[in-house]
Design a protein around this nucleic acid. Structure first.
Length: 205
DNA sequence: ACGAGGATGCTCT
DNA sequence: GAGCATCCTCGTG
């Protein structure tokens, strides 16, 4: 199980988002270890309105205000970008492109691999359809105990890191593509920048 | 099965 | 004060 290195992320998010499908997210929390297989992602980049970085760049693409939350998207590739949505849901992203560009990939859904008990505990859900644990960006963060404490951390080492899956080589899958989900009033909703493992029951609705 | 609406709190203008 | 990369519950049929 090898952690993905920063160089993996120093590319266009449209390339990385599908490349992250099938990879593993590992969280070594004080509660114990949790592992999930990524089944759904979305790409974001400074030059389109759906991205948080969009409002934080000058016309030439340079960073406007380093004090805004979205400045995290301009960090080194492979850094975590975690923010809260609707006041109560945490979202896990990984920074893409070389430092200073402003791009990322949102992890939207995962398939539980290890630590199912902890995930149920964190979600307060027991004995129901297990896909309800992690089939959404807010749900998977709650299940994994991911919040702002893990913001702007390198994702190639504990406590939170992404790895190649086991066993290796991983079983093949087909990649589906669609427009992104939940963006405000048409912002980027024509862009098919969402990727998912076709047929996986763990993908969000 | 599906849709509408409320919860909720932080960020930026 | 508006807006928000969501989730859940409670209506309908």
């Amino acid at each position: 199980m090898e952690a993905l290195q920063p160089s993996f992320y120093a590319r266009h998010p449209l390339v990385i988002a599908p490349d992250l499908l099938g990879k593993w997210v590992v969280h070594e929390s004080v509660q114990g270890r949790m592992i999930g297989r990524i089944v759904e992602t979305e790409a974001y980049r400074y030059d389109e309105a759906g991205c948080h970085a969009w409002k934080n760049v000058y016309a030439d693409g340079s960073l406007r205000d380093p004090n805004l939350i979205s400045a995290g998207l301009f960090d080194a590739p492979g850094t975590s970008y975690i923010y809260i949505s609707y006041g109560l849901h945490w979202m896990l992203n990984v920074v893409c492109e070389p430092e200073g560009v402003g791009a990322g990939v949102l992890i939207r859904a995962i398939e539980p691999i290890e630590g199912l008990m902890l995930m149920q505990q964190n979600r307060g859900i027991f004995g129901k359809n297990p896909k309800l644990l992690t089939n959404g960006p807010g749900k998977l963060c709650q299940a994994f105990g991911i919040d702002r404490r893990l913001h702007r951390l390198p994702l190639d080492r504990p406590p939170l890191y992404f790895t190649t899956p086991l066993p290796s080589p991983a079983e093949p899958f087909e990649c589906g593509v669609s427009p992104r989900i939940g963006l405000a009033k048409g912002m980027g909703d024509t862009l098919a920048w969402r990727f998912f493992i076709k047929g996986s029951p763990w993908v969000s609705r």
